[in-house]
Design a protein around this nucleic acid. Structure first.
Lengths: 187, 187
DNA sequence: GGTTCCATGTAAGGTGTTACATGATTCA
DNA sequence: TGAATCATGTAACACCTTACATGGAACC
């Protein structure tokens, strides 16, 4: 089984979640939306074909029998799949990619004759960060149920999933502060 | 001229740059790479067809005659184009989209038997932020040539382009600090 | 006049979302 | 059994990048 074409981002997410526990594609969708969606989006149109592709590759395998063409199907990761996942974790990563329409509007909005346009661009940016922040806080609630968020000094003891989501929270929080500070009295 | 299909992200960038000054497609590519590339990527395969599409729509128009099939062509924005750009600036924005493989690896890397995997994921994250920071600093140099960066208290007086790029710099800087602080002695 | 870089353009394929279709499951 | 929801699957399209092709411009 030599090296094949590289897997898609969605495929790695599938492997990652199955490495935590066997589950169905739908479970993966729900989990992803509650945790990594902000920086590693998953959509059904990608997920289900990838499940088949990964199974054909031997990286995952179905548990039990399919009860019909659209029945719930559980999957588990194979040993070979775990090896591939570990290789991926150790390999160099693709560059960060961002598409931020609010920043673009802030960039281009300075020359508008209407002076409110820039202020509106800044406000929109701020609101987006706030939404992101709320989302990530709720995601942290999923990851750390029934307990208070630990103080920063404890953060180093957290597991990596918590670290990743917490990173997003930190970024959103400081972004909001920054916008407020730069804008000063204007808002 | 009723409303038509919405323009692509690349099209708005073209309009934005042409609203600053008439220029060629190649000029736009260069400018974009030096300024908004981190949050609003542009590639030639998108740019040149969009120039034609925008021209057909009447939002931009060629300056002078085309000197041949592959000769340099300059463009300018039309009044109609300026109106459309202003509408876009005032309209609601698409949600922020991020694809960050390093964060994904941090998320999934906690269960790896090899304890070095998580540390490596964190180091990779840190290095990416550093690269981003360096890039943005140089972009600021382009936007603010021949002068020192103004102190934060002056930032509110900056134009919107500077604000946008500066925002990226701030985000990258705090991100790097965060990673260093959370990781603590481990790096 | 030939080489190198500038500038435009195109083709192919990867990536990803949305919307919809279909069949299972559940529950009244 | 009928309705609502769960879960899988697919089709269509938007977007983007990469790699390449082609012709102009500049420089020696």
């Amino acid at each position: 089984m030599t090296d094949q074409a590289p897997l898609t981002p969605t495929a790695w997410a599938i492997m990652g979640f199955l490495s935590l526990a066997p589950q169905s594609g739908y479970d993966i969708l729900r989990q992803a939306k509650e945790s990594i969606a902000e920086f590693w989006g998953i959509s059904p149109g990608q997920l289900y074909p990838q499940l088949q592709a990964l199974s054909a590759r031997g990286y995952i395998r179905p548990i039990g029998e399919a009860q019909g063409p659209h029945a719930r199907q559980h999957w588990e990761i194979t040993e070979q799949g775990r090896d591939a996942l570990l290789d991926w974790l150790k390999a160099p990563s693709a560059p960060l990619r961002v598409r931020d329409e609010r920043l673009a509007k802030l960039f281009f909005g300075s020359r508008a004759e209407d002076p409110g346009v820039r202020d509106q661009a800044i406000a929109a940016l701020q609101e987006e960060r706030r939404r992101l922040l709320a989302h990530i806080d709720s995601a942290l609630g999923v990851l750390l149920p029934d307990q208070e968020l630990p103080p920063p000094s404890e953060a180093a003891k957290l597991g990596a999933p918590e670290l990743a989501v917490r990173y997003g929270a930190h970024a959103a929080r400081t972004a909001e502060h920054w916008v407020r500070r730069v804008v000063g009295r204007k808002l």
